[in-house]
């Protein structure tokens, strides 16, 4: 075996420390002038691919992939600064029809075939849409085995052992390559991109493509009717003294 060809699809999302706001027209979440970064689950995927290589699993290449607006290049550069070898960017501008999980899965299938990947590591979900479907659909389209919500990955020869998170515990499964893995929070702790590596990443190849290059013309199947914020949490009440607290508790029927 000449070594694994790993594909890591990543997504640019609103930074998870930023509170998302719904736009005035209630059609979508406001994205202009909002800090964006790599989907945190995808950071875990990149990190795991790099760690596999560091653990001397024979790896020929780690390719980062993203479909999204021009700015998605920033996260691809970050992925390469962390340790991915090269990346592919399919440009989907914000004004274009947006991809749904099935569309992404179809696109990824083409990429996997083109790149001859034999392991795809994806985040179990993106924190903007929270669909948690792409990995599974991709496995279905390719007819590959899948291990979702991975918290530990071991590869020896052609066999992959994955410990995955399930309700109330963990499940250990074994499958042969090629396969799909989706990552969960406990898998690893992603590294910082160091400055020397950020500099080096600038010189790594980044290929720009379009959906047409892959022969796809995906139209959304879903229509978003309305986006609303959750109802605001009711604030607490301050009381002046113990008597005030007791009478308040009585008023609320807690005493």
């Amino acid at each position: 075996m000449s070594g694994l060809r790993i594909l890591v699809p990543i997504k640019r999302v609103i930074d998870y420390a930023v509170k998302p706001r719904v736009n005035r027209a209630q059609t979508a979440v406001e994205t202009a002038n909002v800090k964006h970064s790599m989907n945190p689950f995808d950071e875990l995927s990149i990190e795991e691919a790099i760690r596999l290589r560091e653990r001397k699993v024979p790896i020929q290449e780690i390719v980062a992939f993203s479909a999204g607006p021009a700015k998605s290049q920033d996260i691809l550069r970050t992925a390469m600064a962390m340790g991915a070898d090269r990346s592919i960017h399919v440009v989907v501008e914000e004004k274009d029809p947006q991809l749904e999980p099935l569309g992404v899965a179809k696109l990824l299938k083409k990429v996997v075939e083109e790149q001859k990947s034999d392991l795809v590591i994806l985040g179990k979900q993106s924190i903007d849409d929270d669909a948690s479907q792409t990995g599974q659909m991709l496995a279905g389209l390719l007819g590959w085995p899948q291990a979702t919500q991975a918290s530990k990955v071991d590869i020896s020869d052609k066999t992959v052992t994955v410990i995955k998170e399930v309700d109330g515990g963990v499940e250990t499964i074994k499958a042969n390559l090629p396969m799909i893995i989706t990552t969960d929070l406990r898998l690893n702790e992603p590294r910082y991109a160091s400055l020397p590596n950020i500099m080096k990443a600038k010189k790594k190849p980044l290929e720009k493509k379009t959906l047409k290059d892959y022969g796809l013309d995906e139209q959304p199947r879903l229509k978003t009717l309305k986006v609303t914020e959750p109802p605001p949490r009711k604030g607490g009440v301050k009381v002046d003294d113990v008597d005030g607290m007791i009478s308040k508790l009585k008023e609320l029927g807690a005493l």
Partner: peptide, 24 residues
């Protein structure tokens, strides 16, 4: 700035926050 301080070897190593959480 980063290119300058790295190339002129003023700083030995460094990281740049890539997200709000890393800033914190």
């Amino acid at each position: 700035f980063l290119e300058h301080v790295m190339e002129s070897e003023i700083v030995a190593d460094g990281v740049l926050a890539e997200s709000q959480t890393q800033v914190a």
